[in-house]
Amino acid sequence: MSSTEIFRLSRMRADVLSGQARLTRLNARLSLSELAGLCGVDPSTVWRWEQGIRVPRGEAALRYARALDVLAQAQARTDVRP
């Protein structure tokens, strides 16, 4: 695992614990099912992650972290005001 992936996982897990991961999904107007499909997991898995019941792990965690990064970056671009 690369240092970039380790950093991404660490940041994603902090965002899950703080509730930011859920807010990122909601701000992007994605359902649990839509994000779960991107991550290759069941919607109940994403729900458990967002509720703090489970910690994202393995390749699914990396896909989840990547998806959240893309959503957060897209949100940051739309937040820029002239």
Results as ranks from 00 to 15, higher is better:
residue 1 M to K: 11
residue 1 M to G: 15
residue 1 M to Y: 10
residue 2 S to H: 12
residue 2 S to I: 03
residue 2 S to Y: 05
residue 2 S to E: 12
residue 2 S to W: 05
residue 3 S to H: 11
residue 4 T to A: 14
residue 4 T to E: 14
residue 5 E to I: 05
residue 5 E to W: 02
residue 5 E to Y: 03
residue 6 I to G: 05
residue 6 I to F: 10
residue 8 R to W: 04
residue 8 R to L: 15
residue 9 L to I: 07
residue 9 L to Q: 03
residue 10 S to Q: 15
residue 10 S to A: 15
residue 10 S to T: 12
residue 10 S to G: 13
residue 11 R to K: 12
residue 13 R to P: 06
residue 13 R to Q: 15
residue 13 R to F: 07
residue 13 R to G: 09
residue 14 A to F: 05
residue 14 A to S: 14
residue 14 A to Y: 04
residue 14 A to N: 10
residue 15 D to Q: 14
residue 16 V to S: 01
residue 16 V to Q: 06
residue 17 L to R: 15
residue 17 L to T: 06
residue 17 L to F: 05
residue 18 S to F: 01
residue 18 S to V: 03
residue 19 G to L: 07
residue 20 Q to C: 02
residue 20 Q to V: 04
residue 21 A to Q: 10
residue 21 A to T: 09
residue 21 A to I: 04
residue 21 A to H: 09
residue 21 A to M: 11
residue 21 A to D: 12
residue 21 A to W: 11
residue 22 R to C: 11
residue 23 L to R: 15
residue 24 T to C: 12
residue 25 R to N: 09
residue 25 R to Q: 11
residue 26 L to D: 13
residue 26 L to I: 12
residue 26 L to G: 02
residue 27 N to T: 07
residue 28 A to G: 13
residue 28 A to I: 03
residue 28 A to C: 06
residue 29 R to T: 04
residue 29 R to Q: 12
residue 29 R to C: 04
residue 31 S to E: 10
residue 31 S to A: 07
residue 32 L to D: 03
residue 32 L to G: 01
residue 32 L to W: 05
residue 33 S to T: 11
residue 33 S to A: 14
residue 34 E to N: 10
residue 35 L to M: 15
residue 36 A to G: 03
residue 37 G to L: 04
residue 37 G to D: 13
residue 38 L to Q: 13
residue 38 L to N: 05
residue 38 L to Y: 07
residue 39 C to E: 00
residue 39 C to I: 00
residue 40 G to R: 06
residue 41 V to N: 03
residue 42 D to Y: 09
residue 43 P to L: 01
residue 43 P to W: 01
residue 43 P to F: 02
residue 43 P to Y: 01
residue 43 P to T: 02
residue 44 S to F: 03
residue 45 T to E: 15
residue 45 T to Q: 14
residue 45 T to W: 04
residue 45 T to Y: 07
residue 46 V to M: 07
residue 46 V to H: 12
residue 47 W to H: 13
residue 48 R to F: 08
residue 49 W to K: 09
residue 50 E to D: 10
residue 52 G to D: 06
residue 52 G to F: 11
residue 52 G to W: 06
residue 52 G to E: 11
residue 52 G to R: 07
residue 53 I to K: 13
residue 54 R to K: 11
residue 54 R to A: 05
residue 54 R to G: 00
residue 55 V to Y: 05
residue 55 V to G: 02
residue 56 P to S: 09
residue 56 P to M: 06
residue 56 P to L: 07
residue 57 R to E: 15
residue 57 R to I: 04
residue 57 R to Y: 04
residue 57 R to H: 10
residue 58 G to W: 01
residue 58 G to F: 02
residue 58 G to M: 01
residue 61 A to N: 01
residue 62 L to I: 13
residue 62 L to C: 06
residue 62 L to A: 12
residue 63 R to C: 05
residue 64 Y to L: 02
residue 64 Y to P: 00
residue 64 Y to K: 00
residue 65 A to L: 06
residue 66 R to E: 13
residue 66 R to F: 06
residue 66 R to I: 08
residue 67 A to R: 00
residue 67 A to W: 02
residue 69 D to S: 14
residue 69 D to K: 03
residue 70 V to R: 13
residue 71 L to M: 13
residue 72 A to G: 06
residue 72 A to D: 14
residue 73 Q to C: 08
residue 73 Q to S: 10
residue 74 A to K: 13
residue 74 A to R: 15
residue 74 A to E: 13
residue 75 Q to D: 12
residue 75 Q to N: 09
residue 75 Q to W: 07
residue 76 A to N: 01
residue 76 A to R: 04
residue 76 A to D: 08
residue 77 R to V: 09
residue 77 R to C: 06
residue 78 T to H: 11
residue 79 D to L: 13
residue 79 D to E: 15
residue 80 V to I: 13
